[in-house]
């Protein structure tokens, strides 16, 4: 059946019709510009002597750099664990029937999330001005414990306290949002089966909230790891501080900053891969296949659409 499609095209048959794609001129131009810019960046990074790549190679596994890496990791893990515990408590308080607990939780989040991390850090570093002596005395027993604040609050502990309290403000909001994302019918069903409030929270609500908690928490952990570089201002020998100590002596500023950046990127990549597997575990009831193996994990790790604040 050949149907004519207009006066001048008597002989064109339906089967002979072809589609002419739209020409994406601007797409081609922008691609060319990006490629040109990339070439320039690689050219200058490769040829400019100031980058001093041999020096980067020399310092990449330098003992004090490695010690800095370990300290940065220890800070990140300790702070994140503490922030998650404090954040969970604050989140549960925010959902409590008691208005006083709710108000306290709101105030905590408002204050510790609102005040800049750097200022909180310097404040805790100077806590001995307010409280020169830490004393615990119990009625009847007298003074149980007493020490000079500066002896107790090492720079490392100061960093942990300051950043954990700050980070807990963020974690509280993430965990609260996760808990409220679980439909109330889940709690009711568990209640009719005779489960206690605590068991309902830990066995029914939180496991389902994890699907909503893990992705933003991964972002927080990555942001936190980078934010720990703030502690260099109070002389904790983290990765950045170790590098600064070296280049203050040798003036190899750029190569050492490259070393620091390479280590941070490596650690963030590894954390992102871990996050991928966590998300797959808590999303397994979604049952869209197996969620992807290591290659998919690497792809999510290298996905730039993450991280928003430093």
């Amino acid at each position: 059946m050949s149907q004519s499609l207009g006066a001048r095209q008597h002989h064109l048959r339906v089967e002979d019709l072809t589609v002419v794609p739209l020409r994406h001129v601007w797409l081609w131009i922008s691609t060319a510009v990006v490629l040109a810019l990339l070439a320039m960046v690689f050219w200058t990074v490769g040829t400019n002597e100031a980058y001093d790549w041999p020096a980067v190679g020399r310092y990449l596994f330098h003992p004090s750099i490695l010690r800095g890496v370990v300290n940065t990791l220890m800070l990140t893990v300790t702070i994140m664990v503490l922030a998650t515990i404090i954040g969970t408590i604050i989140a549960i308080m925010r959902l409590s029937p008691s208005r006083i607990l709710r108000t306290f939780a709101n105030a905590y989040i408002w204050f510790f999330r609102g005040a800049p991390a750097l200022i909180q850090l310097i404040f805790w570093f100077n806590i001995s001005i307010i409280m020169p002596q830490i004393t615990l005395s119990l009625p009847g027993l007298g003074v149980v414990f007493s020490a000079r604040t500066n002896d107790v609050m090492t720079p490392f502990l100061t960093a942990v306290v300051a950043l954990a309290l700050h980070e807990a403000g963020y974690m509280a909001e993430i965990i609260r949002a996760g808990i409220t994302s679980v439909p109330p019918g889940q709690t009711e069903a568990a209640a009719t089966l005779g489960m206690s409030r605590r068991k309902i929270l830990w066995r029914i609500v939180l496991p389902q909230a994890m699907r909503f908690i893990v992705p933003p928490t991964g972002n927080e952990a990555i942001n936190l790891m980078k934010a720990t570089s703030l502690v260099s201002v109070i002389a904790v020998d983290d990765l950045l501080y170790s590098a600064q100590t070296i280049y203050a002596r040798t003036f190899e500023t750029i190569p050492l900053l490259s070393v620091v950046a390479i280590w941070y990127l490596a650690m963030v990549t590894i954390m992102s891969i871990g996050q991928h597997f966590l998300e797959r575990h808590f999303g397994r009831s979604d049952s869209r296949g197996d969620g992807g193996g290591f290659r998919a994990a690497l792809r999510t790790a290298l996905n730039p659409m993450r991280g928003r604040r430093t």
Binding site: P183, G185, Q186, E188, A189, A190, A191, T192, L193, G194, I204, Q208, S285
Partner: peptide, 15 residues
């Protein structure tokens, strides 16, 4: 409550 079972309109199976 453990002795009183309940079945809901929306099932409410633990997801």
């Amino acid at each position: 409550r453990a002795d009183i079972g309940m079945v809901f309109q929306n099932f409410n199976l633990f997801g």
